[in-house]
């Protein structure tokens, strides 16, 4: 996939922002799984010889980053199964401490009802109201509490190691806000705050459903797009589905931080189009040469 999308191989560059956009007919979960696998790096049993140190894109060797997976749309069991089929044992990663999980699905938006943060009593809230921030709450409390949860999951902020935060759905975070205007404020603020963790060495990988964003509430998606170094977009075929092609996937390298360096001196394209086909053992991505 990296080759087809013109992305640099190896672990994610520090502080990079990758945004994955998808729609109903062409889910981008496989791109998210691929980037999560890249963030986690090689398995521990593979790098016994180098002590967990990996080779980065520029040839330098650095330690594997600590990864935080924010499960807002799917539970951890789903991610574990999907990654297991792709050859990655997330449970082992959690046990080894390489991966931390913030569960925002089974306890959705529980941070919004944190009495210490928002001043609201959890006991007074019931049902869906307990899982969403009230309109009368002070602004950005939900995003702030989620940020605290992510910071706790990543550990010491003074650590020299890199970190990667993976959001499996930004829409789930935006839907938790009472209004679209609140979502437009909360999501970009959260992304900015998370990227500042570990002295700015935190990379962000986020998935957003493009077709589920309201027309008047696309502010947060536009903001996430402007912040991203690379935007990977999955689109369905306009003619439906075919047996050998399930959809289009394109990578727009906005800053070139994740673009693959060419060896022959040719200018790397900023936008790369490819087709994908999903199988049980992973996606098959083939580049489209125009």
């Amino acid at each position: 996939m990296d080759e087809a999308l013109g992305m640099r191989a190896g672990p994610l560059p520090r502080g990079v922002h990758a945004l994955v956009e998808d729609e109903i007919a062409a889910g981008g979960g496989f791109v998210l799984a691929h980037l999560l696998a890249r963030a986690l790096g090689r398995r521990d049993d593979d790098d016994d010889d180098d002590g967990g140190v990996e080779e980065g894109g520029g040839g330098q060797r650095r330690a594997s980053p600590r990864v935080c997976l924010v499960c807002a749309e799917q539970d951890f069991a789903h991610h574990a199964r999907v990654m297991g089929k792709l050859g990655r044992n997330l449970r082992a990663d959690v046990s080894s401490g390489a991966l931390a999980v913030v569960d925002a699905l089974t306890t959705p938006f529980a941070w919004c009802a944190n009495p210490g943060a928002s001043g609201l009593s959890r006991g007074k809230m019931g049902g869906v109201e307990a899982h969403t921030r009230r309109a009368d709450a002070s602004g950005l409390d939900g995003a702030r509490d989620l940020f605290r949860a992510i910071a706790r999951a990543l550990g010491d902020d003074d650590d020299d190691g890199d970190a990667v935060v993976v959001f499996d759905s930004l829409n789930a975070l935006a839907d938790g806000e009472p209004t679209a205007a609140d979502a437009d404020r909360a999501v970009p603020s959260l992304l900015a705050s998370v990227s500042s963790l570990r002295r700015g060495r935190t990379a962000i990988v986020a998935l957003a459903h493009r077709d589920a964003c309201a027309w008047d509430g696309r502010g947060w998606l536009d903001a996430a797009r402007r912040r991203a170094d690379v935007v990977v977009s999955c689109r369905a075929l306009t003619t439906g589905h075919a047996a050998d092609v399930h959809g289009h996937v394109s990578a727009e390298h906005r800053t070139g931080r994740m673009i693959k360096t060419t060896t022959n001196g040719a200018a790397a394209p900023r936008r790369v189009d490819a087709r994908f086909r999903l199988t049980e053992l992973g996606p098959k991505v083939s580049r489209v040469h125009v």
Binding site: A33, H246, L278, G282
Partner: peptide, 12 residues
């Protein structure tokens, strides 16, 4: 949940 590959709908 748990399905890694294509949805059964991806063919048509």
């Amino acid at each position: 949940p748990g399905v890694a590959g294509a949805s059964p709908l991806t063919r048509m």
